[in-house]
């Protein structure tokens, strides 16, 4: 009985202690909040409309503001090869976290350097520079093969493998991001066979059903591959029309491939997003997001585009 009492009291002490182990840290001051402007923009001459997202960082400690930290009215200044340009903007609220400024009456050009200055009437300033890469022909090719396999649930399926090859442009550092899209188009009445890409994508026929799946790829670089032809990615997907024999067969199918020739800040920022870690366990370290914005946060980056439309059916 005596020993049972001892064990009981030990357990009681432990229970008391363990229950008091989580609390607000009262003996440390949180890091001081310093307000900064946030810039997020990916400029390209291949876009019809370019936009620049502006917001403020938000305090993490103390009383939190909603919907976002006020940063006043901002003025945007853009310099093309050091010469200020004139443009119009249309501002839209972007998901309640800041404003998107659509650039009107101005087209960005490949090979030019753009300097962006953002000044708020609250005295906040941010500045960033990017140089838009030259458009390059990377000689995109696709090699496709089909194979049958068994899926996890025992279902027999066919897989399409597409090896996407490019030839790196010699004598310069290139940074890539690959985007691809698999489109299938189903016939409507009246039936029309072998829809052209123009009819399917650029000026779609009303009433046609479409199935498409955007896929985007991670960024990569050409280190060790300067001027060489190489397989950039091997992608594998399940073509809908081969595995739904009882459903209506699509009229046509395309694999659309877009290769972004990006600048280094684009690469560095997306790489830091890929590796992003909050370090929210005692055994992991948080990672940082890349920024090239002086006096602020975020990214000003650019790219040009090379593409290939590959007909699968």
């Amino acid at each position: 009985m005596k020993s049972q009492n001892i064990i009981f009291y030990i357990l009681l002490i432990f229970t008391f202690n363990i229950s008091s182990c989580r609390k607000i840290a009262s003996n440390v001051d949180p890091p001081e909040f310093v307000q900064k402007l946030v810039v997020n923009a990916y400029l390209s001459p291949d876009k019809l409309n370019n936009s620049i997202f502006i917001s403020s960082n938000e305090r993490r400690f103390g009383e939190l503001t909603s919907p976002f930290e006020p940063f006043g009215n901002v003025s945007l200044y853009i310099y093309e090869n050091s010469k200020e340009i004139q443009f119009d903007t249309v501002r839209e609220n972007y998901f309640g976290s800041g404003y998107n400024y659509w650039i009107k009456n101005f087209q960005f050009k490949e090979g030019y350097t753009y300097n962006l200055k953002v000044i708020s009437d609250l005295g906040l300033e941010a500045e960033a520079t990017c140089k838009i890469p030259l458009k390059r022909d990377f000689q995109i090719t696709v090699d496709t093969t089909f194979r049958k396999t068994t899926e996890e649930h025992g279902l027999k399926i066919s897989l399409l493998t597409a090896k996407i090859s490019i030839t790196d442009f010699p004598g310069e550092a290139n940074y890539y991001r690959l985007l691809y899209l698999y489109d299938t188009y189903y016939p409507a009445t009246p039936h029309k066979k072998n829809l052209s890409y123009k009819d399917a994508v650029e000026s779609p026929i009303p009433g046609w059903a479409e199935y498409n799946a955007w896929q985007n790829d991670r960024v990569s670089n050409d280190i060790g591959l300067d001027g060489k032809k190489f397989i950039l990615r091997t992608i594998e997907f399940q073509p809908v029309y081969l595995d739904q024999p009882n459903s209506s067969e699509p009229d046509s199918a395309f694999l659309r491939i877009y290769l972004l020739n990006t600048d280094k800040p684009y690469y560095d920022f997306h790489k830091s997003l890929e590796n992003y870690s909050l370090g929210d366990t005692p055994f992991t370290e948080p990672s940082f997001l890349y920024s090239n914005v002086k006096g602020g946060l975020g990214i000003l980056a650019s790219y040009t585009l090379d593409s290939l439309i590959f007909r699968l059916k």
Binding site: P30, P31, E32, F33, V34, Q35, K36, V38, N40, Y42, S44, D46, K47, L48, N49, S51, F53, S55, S56, N57, E58, R59, R60, F61, S97, G98, R177, L179, V201, E202, P204, N212, W214, N216, Y258, L260, Y266, F269, H270, L273, G279, E285, P286, L289, L297, G298, I299, A301, Y303, L305, S307
Partner: peptide, 26 residues
């Protein structure tokens, strides 16, 4: 240790194909 002082909106390039057709918001 590394402790944040603030948060901010930081998104990747989700609109790269904005000029190229429908459903561009990837």
């Amino acid at each position: 240790i590394t402790m944040p002082s603030a948060t901010y909106s930081a998104f990747g390039d989700n609109s790269a194909l904005g000029s190229r057709g429908r459903n561009a918001n990837i």
